[in-house]
Simulated scan of single mutants.
Amino acid sequence: MARTDVPTRKRILDAAGKLFHADGIRAVSVDAVAEKSGLTKRTLYYHFRSKDDLIAAYLETRDQPNLALFQRWFAETEGTTADKVQGIFRQLSASARHPKWKGCGFLRTSVELIHLPGHPAILAGRAHKKRVEDWLCSVFEESRLPEDARLLARQVLLLLDGAFAVVLLHRDPSYMDSAGEAAAQLIRD
């Protein structure tokens, strides 16, 4: 597909996604996004009222694909629910071994915008994490796991997000494996 055949909004989001992933949201200017997408800044602002709206839209485009990836990894892992949840961590550990891996974009964005709790990107990140938690809760309810499936879903989400942070700090994916073992143990108990 030729570049001009790609809808303008998608071109902007694709360019923004590459730049935000590589450099972070604060380091990337609207000018850089416009240039990378091959458009004028005016055209970019026609599709997004502000850089804040662009950042939120970028995260919203990552929501369903990220959740679908977790769901696929869960489904493809053989064994019990505990094994399947551990499989998500195992896959994340493998992903973290790639030199371009930069962790969770939702968490990285929340750190960059820590002083703006009502920012549209923070709201998008919060909604994504809630969807992941809700999905885990439904998995645990379907598996007839502990009476408090919501609490277990929150604990596993905390292990996921904590592992993202520690793997980034240490550049050691084995922390993701350790978090997966802890999640599996929680589910088995």
Rank of each mutant, 00 (worst) to 15 (best):
S50E: 00
V33K: 00
F74Q: 03
H170R: 14
A121I: 04
W135P: 01
A2C: 03
K41S: 02
Q91G: 04
L157Q: 08
T81A: 10
D31T: 14
G180K: 05
M1R: 07
T8P: 01
P120F: 10
A56N: 02
V167N: 08
N66W: 12
N66L: 15
W101H: 11
K36C: 06
H21R: 14
R49Y: 02
E112N: 03
S29Q: 07
G17V: 04
F70E: 05
P120I: 07
L67V: 09
A82H: 03
L19Y: 01
G103V: 13
A15P: 02
L19W: 01
L116T: 07
S93P: 02
S50K: 00
Q155G: 07
E78N: 13
H21V: 02
A82C: 06
K84T: 11
Q91N: 14
I88A: 01
H98Y: 10
S138D: 13
V139W: 03
M1K: 05
R11C: 04
K84F: 11
R9A: 10
R49S: 14
P7F: 03
A183P: 05
T4N: 12
I55W: 00
R9W: 04
R62T: 05
L69Y: 12
L54I: 00
I88N: 05
K10L: 15
T43D: 02
D31F: 09
S50Q: 00
R42K: 08
L107C: 10
P99T: 09
V132E: 09
T80D: 13
Y46K: 13
T81H: 03
D172I: 13
K41M: 04
P173T: 12
A34Y: 02
F74M: 08
E142F: 05
R126H: 13
T77D: 02
A121Q: 03
A32W: 00
I187N: 01
D172P: 06
D63K: 09
A94C: 06
F140W: 07
G38E: 05
G162S: 04
L13F: 10
A163T: 12
I55V: 15
R49G: 13
T8R: 11
S143T: 09
D31A: 14
L145K: 11
R171P: 01
W135T: 07
W101Q: 03
Q155C: 11
D31C: 01
H170P: 00
A57N: 02
E181G: 06
A16D: 01
F89V: 11
L169F: 12
K84S: 08
R154D: 05
F140S: 07
V85I: 15
A94V: 15
D5I: 01
T4F: 07
A68W: 04
T40F: 04
R131P: 00
L158C: 11
A15E: 03
Y58F: 15
L116F: 08
F74H: 12
L39Y: 09
L151T: 13
L157S: 12
G125H: 04
F140V: 10
I25L: 13
R72D: 08
A15V: 05
P173G: 07
Y46M: 12
D31P: 00
Q185F: 15
D31L: 11
R150M: 08
Y45A: 01
H98S: 09
A96S: 13
Y58Q: 03
